[in-house]
Design a protein around this nucleic acid. Structure first.
Length: 275
DNA sequence: GTGCCATGTGAAA
DNA sequence: TTCACCTGGCACC
């Protein structure tokens, strides 16, 4: 489930399993064979993530850049490694663990310069304690583009995907089509703080859970009707009643992905003040 | 069992 | 604008 929290967890798993160890590296599938062979027998130093990008660093200034894309998987398990199942692009093996990468959009050996260039393209990551949200605000506050598109732009905020986009906008009563520059600074600050909380919760839980405690009862009730556990407000709940107000959740494509929102909780325009 | 859709991105056309 | 990646969950038969 690759939004930023997934990659952060994965970096932790890889670090815990391999950091400091000499590893065997190969590509059973063959597509990463030449590069994998160059890493075979080297010491793995570190694994880290920024947004949805993962970096695995080895001695001799070698690093692998991985992007899981929509359905890539990278599993880390205890040894012994079984025969590879399916298309294993990259396999790492140590005395105590193994890791298999499948279906990734990107798996490439990168120079330190190329690695840095990837980092330079990315906006601040809410999971990064050193992230500077002002960089995101500078982009959003100047843009006529819809906030629902800006949040998906990894150069604006790194790590937010389609689920977090839908959910954080719901939690802040913002319509996805609202132009970025119509947000007030305080609204952005609250949005960012919420992303920090939600992504960290995603890291802990291993899943995206966005319901506030006060809405848990409504979610349980909805689950019996929808035949699947409801743990989010609007993501993939189109046609279902909003857990807060009961209006029918809507969907429409935005930034090449389906966007979901409640037309009553998230009006396009809101009066600036009441009373 | 089959077929569609999906938490994403970049290359090819 | 379309395709590639080529996994996996789930609705439907």
């Amino acid at each position: 489930m690759p939004e930023g929290h997934t990659l952060f967890r994965l970096a932790t798993s890889l670090r815990d399993a391999f950091a400091g160890d000499v590893v065997a590296s190969g590509s059973p599938q063959g597509r990463f064979e030449e590069s994998a062979a160059q890493l075979d027998g080297l010491r793995l130093l570190e694994a880290s993530s920024r947004g949805k990008h993962l970096f695995v660093d080895f001695e001799q200034d070698r690093a692998v850049h991985v992007h899981l894309g929509l359905y890539g998987k990278f599993v880390v398990r205890a040894a012994p490694a079984p025969d590879p199942v399916g298309q294993v692009r990259w396999r790492l093996v140590s005395g105590s663990a193994y890791a298999d990468l499948r279906g990734a959009t990107a798996c490439e050996l990168v120079t330190p310069e190329a690695r840095q260039a990837i980092l330079d393209r990315l906006g601040p990551d809410p999971l990064d304690p050193g992230a500077d949200p002002e960089r995101a605000w500078a982009r959003i506050s100047r843009s006529r583009a819809p906030i629902g598109g800006l949040l998906m732009d990894q150069a604006v905020v790194a790590g937010v995907g389609n689920v977090y986009r839908a959910e954080v906008l719901f939690r802040h009563r913002l319509h996805p089509l609202r132009p970025g520059r119509t947000l007030r600074r305080g609204q952005f600050a609250a949005l960012w703080e919420d992303l920090v909380v939600l992504l960290h919760d995603g890291v802990r839980a291993g899943q995206i859970r966005t319901l506030r405690p006060e809405d848990a009862a409504a979610a349980r009730e909805a689950s019996t009707v929808e035949h699947r556990r409801v743990k989010n407000y609007v993501y993939r709940r189109q046609g279902q009643p909003c857990l807060v107000c009961g209006a029918t959740v809507r969907t429409e494509e935005l930034a090449h992905r389906n966007s979901f929102w409640c037309p009553r909780c998230q009006p396009v325009f809101r009066s600036r003040a009441v009373g």
